[in-house]
Amino acid sequence: MLDFLIAIVTFTAIYAVVSLGLNLQWGQAGLVNLGQVAFFAAGAYTAAILARAGTPFPLAVLAGMVVAALLGALVALITPRLREDYLAIVTLGFAELVRLILLNEKEIGNGPSGINAIPQPLHELFSANYPLFFAFLTVAALIVVYLFNERLRRAPLGRLLRAIREDESVVASIGKSVLAFKVETFSLGAAMAGIAGAFYAAYLTFIAPEMFTASVSIYVLVAVLIAARGSNIGTVLGAVFVSVLLEGTDFIKDYIPFGTGVQIAAVRIIIMGVILMLVVLARYRKVVEG
Protein backbone atom coordinates (compact mmCIF):
# COMPACT_ATOMS: atom_id res chain seq x y z
CA MET A 1 0.00 0.00 0.00
CA LEU A 2 2.78 2.39 0.96
CA ASP A 3 4.80 1.41 -2.11
CA PHE A 4 1.77 2.13 -4.16
CA LEU A 5 1.31 5.54 -2.58
CA ILE A 6 4.95 6.41 -3.23
CA ALA A 7 4.52 5.38 -6.85
CA ILE A 8 1.44 7.57 -7.20
CA VAL A 9 3.25 10.55 -5.70
CA THR A 10 6.14 10.10 -8.12
CA PHE A 11 3.88 9.76 -11.16
CA THR A 12 1.81 12.72 -10.05
CA ALA A 13 4.85 14.93 -9.62
CA ILE A 14 6.10 13.98 -13.09
CA TYR A 15 2.71 14.63 -14.69
CA ALA A 16 2.44 17.89 -12.78
CA VAL A 17 5.73 19.15 -14.19
CA VAL A 18 4.61 18.33 -17.76
CA SER A 19 1.27 20.03 -17.02
CA LEU A 20 2.96 23.13 -15.61
CA GLY A 21 4.84 23.41 -18.90
CA LEU A 22 1.57 23.32 -20.80
CA ASN A 23 0.02 25.77 -18.36
CA LEU A 24 2.80 28.22 -19.10
CA GLN A 25 2.23 27.87 -22.84
CA TRP A 26 -1.52 27.68 -22.90
CA GLY A 27 -2.81 29.00 -19.59
CA GLN A 28 -0.53 32.03 -19.57
CA ALA A 29 0.28 32.83 -23.22
CA GLY A 30 -2.66 31.13 -24.96
CA LEU A 31 -0.45 28.86 -27.06
CA VAL A 32 -2.29 25.62 -27.77
CA ASN A 33 -0.11 22.53 -27.57
CA LEU A 34 -1.67 19.15 -28.24
CA GLY A 35 1.71 17.43 -28.49
CA GLN A 36 3.34 18.02 -25.12
CA VAL A 37 4.23 14.30 -25.10
CA ALA A 38 6.82 14.92 -27.83
CA PHE A 39 8.93 17.09 -25.53
CA PHE A 40 8.36 14.66 -22.66
CA ALA A 41 9.69 11.88 -24.90
CA ALA A 42 12.61 14.00 -26.10
CA GLY A 43 13.65 14.64 -22.50
CA ALA A 44 13.23 10.98 -21.56
CA TYR A 45 15.25 9.63 -24.48
CA THR A 46 18.01 12.23 -24.23
CA ALA A 47 18.46 11.64 -20.52
CA ALA A 48 18.23 7.85 -20.87
CA ILE A 49 20.85 7.66 -23.61
CA LEU A 50 23.20 9.98 -21.74
CA ALA A 51 22.69 8.22 -18.42
CA ARG A 52 23.54 4.89 -20.00
CA ALA A 53 26.68 6.47 -21.40
CA GLY A 54 27.65 7.36 -17.84
CA THR A 55 26.48 10.98 -17.62
CA PRO A 56 25.57 12.06 -14.08
CA PHE A 57 21.85 12.48 -13.49
CA PRO A 58 21.78 16.30 -13.10
CA LEU A 59 23.58 16.71 -16.43
CA ALA A 60 21.28 14.19 -18.11
CA VAL A 61 18.26 16.16 -16.84
CA LEU A 62 19.81 19.39 -18.09
CA ALA A 63 20.46 17.84 -21.51
CA GLY A 64 16.90 16.50 -21.68
CA MET A 65 15.64 19.95 -20.86
CA VAL A 66 17.81 21.63 -23.50
CA VAL A 67 16.89 19.17 -26.26
CA ALA A 68 13.18 19.55 -25.46
CA ALA A 69 13.54 23.35 -25.41
CA LEU A 70 15.26 23.36 -28.79
CA LEU A 71 12.57 21.11 -30.27
CA GLY A 72 9.96 23.42 -28.77
CA ALA A 73 11.58 26.43 -30.38
CA LEU A 74 11.72 24.54 -33.69
CA VAL A 75 8.00 23.70 -33.57
CA ALA A 76 7.17 27.29 -32.66
CA LEU A 77 9.24 28.61 -35.54
CA ILE A 78 7.82 26.30 -38.21
CA THR A 79 4.22 27.08 -37.27
CA PRO A 80 2.98 29.91 -39.49
CA ARG A 81 2.42 32.95 -37.31
CA LEU A 82 1.85 30.60 -34.37
CA ARG A 83 -1.87 30.87 -34.85
CA GLU A 84 -4.01 28.80 -32.55
CA ASP A 85 -5.54 26.55 -35.21
CA TYR A 86 -2.23 25.86 -36.95
CA LEU A 87 -0.50 25.26 -33.66
CA ALA A 88 -3.08 22.63 -32.64
CA ILE A 89 -2.48 20.67 -35.83
CA VAL A 90 1.29 21.10 -35.95
CA THR A 91 1.83 20.03 -32.33
CA LEU A 92 -0.46 17.03 -32.71
CA GLY A 93 1.34 15.95 -35.86
CA PHE A 94 4.77 16.68 -34.46
CA ALA A 95 4.20 14.45 -31.44
CA GLU A 96 3.16 11.59 -33.70
CA LEU A 97 6.21 12.22 -35.86
CA VAL A 98 8.53 12.01 -32.86
CA ARG A 99 6.92 8.76 -31.72
CA LEU A 100 7.22 7.24 -35.20
CA ILE A 101 10.86 8.27 -35.49
CA LEU A 102 11.61 6.66 -32.12
CA LEU A 103 9.75 3.55 -33.24
CA ASN A 104 11.46 3.18 -36.59
CA GLU A 105 14.92 4.68 -36.23
CA LYS A 106 16.53 1.86 -34.32
CA GLU A 107 19.81 3.77 -33.90
CA ILE A 108 18.20 6.30 -31.57
CA GLY A 109 16.57 4.15 -28.94
CA ASN A 110 16.38 0.53 -30.20
CA GLY A 111 13.04 1.12 -31.92
CA PRO A 112 10.04 -0.66 -30.40
CA SER A 113 12.09 -2.51 -27.80
CA GLY A 114 13.11 0.79 -26.23
CA ILE A 115 15.92 1.55 -23.80
CA ASN A 116 16.29 -0.53 -20.67
CA ALA A 117 18.58 -0.62 -17.65
CA ILE A 118 18.61 3.15 -17.36
CA PRO A 119 20.84 4.00 -14.35
CA GLN A 120 19.17 5.68 -11.38
CA PRO A 121 20.88 8.47 -9.47
CA LEU A 122 22.40 7.49 -6.10
CA HIS A 123 20.88 4.07 -6.33
CA GLU A 124 23.52 2.37 -4.14
CA LEU A 125 23.04 4.91 -1.38
CA PHE A 126 19.32 4.31 -0.87
CA SER A 127 18.96 0.74 -2.07
CA ALA A 128 16.09 -0.26 0.20
CA ASN A 129 14.27 3.06 0.33
CA TYR A 130 15.04 4.02 -3.21
CA PRO A 131 11.43 4.65 -4.38
CA LEU A 132 10.90 6.96 -1.43
CA PHE A 133 14.11 8.85 -2.19
CA PHE A 134 13.15 9.20 -5.83
CA ALA A 135 9.68 10.41 -4.90
CA PHE A 136 11.30 13.15 -2.82
CA LEU A 137 13.63 14.02 -5.68
CA THR A 138 10.74 14.29 -8.13
CA VAL A 139 8.64 16.36 -5.76
CA ALA A 140 11.65 18.63 -5.27
CA ALA A 141 11.84 19.10 -9.05
CA LEU A 142 8.10 19.84 -9.10
CA ILE A 143 8.54 22.48 -6.41
CA VAL A 144 11.36 24.16 -8.33
CA VAL A 145 9.34 24.24 -11.57
CA TYR A 146 6.25 25.39 -9.68
CA LEU A 147 8.09 28.25 -7.97
CA PHE A 148 9.60 29.33 -11.28
CA ASN A 149 6.17 29.40 -12.92
CA GLU A 150 4.66 31.33 -10.02
CA ARG A 151 7.48 33.85 -10.21
CA LEU A 152 7.00 34.23 -13.93
CA ARG A 153 3.26 34.69 -13.47
CA ARG A 154 3.82 37.54 -11.02
CA ALA A 155 6.65 39.09 -13.03
CA PRO A 156 6.18 41.70 -15.75
CA LEU A 157 6.80 38.86 -18.22
CA GLY A 158 3.66 37.09 -16.97
CA ARG A 159 1.69 40.27 -17.50
CA LEU A 160 2.97 40.50 -21.06
CA LEU A 161 2.16 36.86 -21.80
CA ARG A 162 -1.40 37.40 -20.59
CA ALA A 163 -1.55 40.47 -22.81
CA ILE A 164 -0.52 38.30 -25.76
CA ARG A 165 -3.17 35.77 -24.80
CA GLU A 166 -5.82 38.50 -24.66
CA ASP A 167 -4.97 40.30 -27.89
CA GLU A 168 -1.66 39.93 -29.63
CA SER A 169 -2.26 42.77 -32.07
CA VAL A 170 -2.28 45.20 -29.14
CA VAL A 171 1.12 43.88 -28.09
CA ALA A 172 2.42 44.31 -31.65
CA SER A 173 0.91 47.79 -31.83
CA ILE A 174 3.04 49.01 -28.93
CA GLY A 175 6.22 47.69 -30.55
CA LYS A 176 6.82 44.33 -28.91
CA SER A 177 7.67 41.25 -30.94
CA VAL A 178 4.88 38.79 -30.25
CA LEU A 179 6.73 36.09 -32.17
CA ALA A 180 9.84 36.34 -29.98
CA PHE A 181 7.84 36.04 -26.76
CA LYS A 182 5.78 33.17 -28.13
CA VAL A 183 8.82 31.19 -29.23
CA GLU A 184 10.49 31.78 -25.88
CA THR A 185 7.38 30.70 -23.94
CA PHE A 186 6.71 27.65 -26.06
CA SER A 187 10.31 26.58 -25.70
CA LEU A 188 10.19 27.07 -21.91
CA GLY A 189 7.05 24.97 -21.60
CA ALA A 190 8.66 22.25 -23.71
CA ALA A 191 11.78 22.40 -21.50
CA MET A 192 9.61 21.60 -18.46
CA ALA A 193 8.23 18.54 -20.23
CA GLY A 194 11.84 17.61 -21.00
CA ILE A 195 12.79 17.75 -17.31
CA ALA A 196 9.81 15.56 -16.46
CA GLY A 197 10.82 13.12 -19.20
CA ALA A 198 14.30 12.75 -17.74
CA PHE A 199 12.81 11.90 -14.33
CA TYR A 200 10.36 9.51 -15.91
CA ALA A 201 13.13 7.58 -17.65
CA ALA A 202 15.21 7.32 -14.49
CA TYR A 203 12.20 6.31 -12.42
CA LEU A 204 11.01 3.50 -14.67
CA THR A 205 14.56 2.53 -15.81
CA PHE A 206 12.90 1.50 -19.04
CA ILE A 207 11.32 3.57 -21.82
CA ALA A 208 9.77 2.65 -25.15
CA PRO A 209 7.89 4.58 -27.85
CA GLU A 210 4.54 3.07 -26.80
CA MET A 211 4.71 5.08 -23.57
CA PHE A 212 4.63 8.32 -25.49
CA THR A 213 1.34 8.22 -27.36
CA ALA A 214 -1.06 11.12 -27.87
CA SER A 215 -3.07 10.04 -24.82
CA VAL A 216 -0.33 11.46 -22.58
CA SER A 217 -0.84 14.87 -24.21
CA ILE A 218 -4.56 14.54 -23.57
CA TYR A 219 -4.12 13.65 -19.88
CA VAL A 220 -1.95 16.69 -19.44
CA LEU A 221 -4.46 18.78 -21.34
CA VAL A 222 -7.22 17.66 -18.95
CA ALA A 223 -5.04 18.56 -15.95
CA VAL A 224 -4.58 22.10 -17.28
CA LEU A 225 -8.17 22.46 -18.46
CA ILE A 226 -9.80 21.64 -15.14
CA ALA A 227 -7.71 24.35 -13.46
CA ALA A 228 -8.70 27.99 -13.57
CA ARG A 229 -6.99 29.53 -16.55
CA GLY A 230 -3.31 30.14 -15.92
CA SER A 231 -3.43 28.91 -12.30
CA ASN A 232 -0.32 26.94 -11.36
CA ILE A 233 -1.71 25.49 -8.14
CA GLY A 234 -4.86 24.53 -10.05
CA THR A 235 -2.74 22.79 -12.65
CA VAL A 236 -0.89 20.80 -9.99
CA LEU A 237 -4.23 19.77 -8.43
CA GLY A 238 -5.46 18.90 -11.93
CA ALA A 239 -2.44 16.65 -12.36
CA VAL A 240 -3.16 15.02 -8.99
CA PHE A 241 -6.72 14.35 -10.09
CA VAL A 242 -5.69 12.91 -13.45
CA SER A 243 -2.95 10.73 -12.09
CA VAL A 244 -5.12 9.38 -9.25
CA LEU A 245 -7.80 8.62 -11.81
CA LEU A 246 -5.29 6.88 -14.07
CA GLU A 247 -3.13 5.03 -11.59
CA GLY A 248 -5.45 4.88 -8.59
CA THR A 249 -8.19 3.02 -10.39
CA ASP A 250 -5.73 0.20 -11.03
CA PHE A 251 -5.62 -0.23 -7.31
CA ILE A 252 -9.36 0.00 -6.69
CA LYS A 253 -10.21 -2.67 -9.20
CA ASP A 254 -9.32 -5.41 -6.74
CA TYR A 255 -12.04 -4.11 -4.44
CA ILE A 256 -14.78 -3.58 -6.98
CA PRO A 257 -16.93 -6.68 -7.34
CA PHE A 258 -18.03 -5.96 -10.90
CA GLY A 259 -16.18 -5.35 -14.14
CA THR A 260 -12.88 -6.66 -15.40
CA GLY A 261 -9.64 -4.72 -15.47
CA VAL A 262 -10.16 -3.89 -19.13
CA GLN A 263 -13.64 -2.56 -18.42
CA ILE A 264 -12.38 -0.34 -15.62
CA ALA A 265 -9.61 0.94 -17.87
CA ALA A 266 -12.28 1.88 -20.40
CA VAL A 267 -14.32 3.66 -17.73
CA ARG A 268 -11.25 5.77 -16.93
CA ILE A 269 -11.01 6.95 -20.50
CA ILE A 270 -14.75 7.65 -20.54
CA ILE A 271 -14.48 9.75 -17.37
CA MET A 272 -11.56 11.64 -18.90
CA GLY A 273 -13.50 12.26 -22.11
CA VAL A 274 -16.61 13.43 -20.27
CA ILE A 275 -14.57 15.85 -18.15
CA LEU A 276 -12.88 17.21 -21.26
CA MET A 277 -16.25 17.79 -22.94
CA LEU A 278 -17.85 19.36 -19.86
CA VAL A 279 -14.97 21.75 -19.36
CA VAL A 280 -14.88 22.76 -23.01
CA LEU A 281 -18.66 23.27 -22.99
CA ALA A 282 -18.50 25.42 -19.86
CA ARG A 283 -15.62 27.47 -21.25
CA TYR A 284 -17.30 27.87 -24.61
CA ARG A 285 -20.48 29.17 -23.03
CA LYS A 286 -18.46 31.69 -21.06
CA VAL A 287 -16.75 32.85 -24.25
CA VAL A 288 -20.05 33.22 -26.08
CA GLU A 289 -21.70 35.13 -23.23
CA GLY A 290 -18.63 37.27 -22.60
Binding site: F148, R151, L152, A155, P156, L157, R159, L160, A163, V171, I174, G175, K176, F181, E184, L188
Partner: peptide, 16 residues
Protein backbone atom coordinates in the same frame (compact mmCIF):
# COMPACT_ATOMS: atom_id res chain seq x y z
CA UNK B 1 2.12 48.96 -17.51
CA UNK B 2 2.78 46.41 -20.24
CA UNK B 3 3.48 49.22 -22.71
CA UNK B 4 7.00 50.57 -21.91
CA UNK B 5 9.83 48.88 -23.72
CA UNK B 6 12.20 47.31 -23.10
CA UNK B 7 11.38 46.03 -19.63
CA UNK B 8 14.00 44.10 -17.70
CA UNK B 9 11.18 42.34 -15.87
CA UNK B 10 9.97 40.90 -19.16
CA UNK B 11 13.21 38.99 -19.66
CA UNK B 12 13.92 35.57 -18.15
CA UNK B 13 16.75 37.02 -16.09
CA UNK B 14 14.25 39.59 -14.85
CA UNK B 15 11.90 36.79 -13.80
CA UNK B 16 14.73 35.15 -11.83
Amino acid sequence: MMVPRPQFGESLVGVM
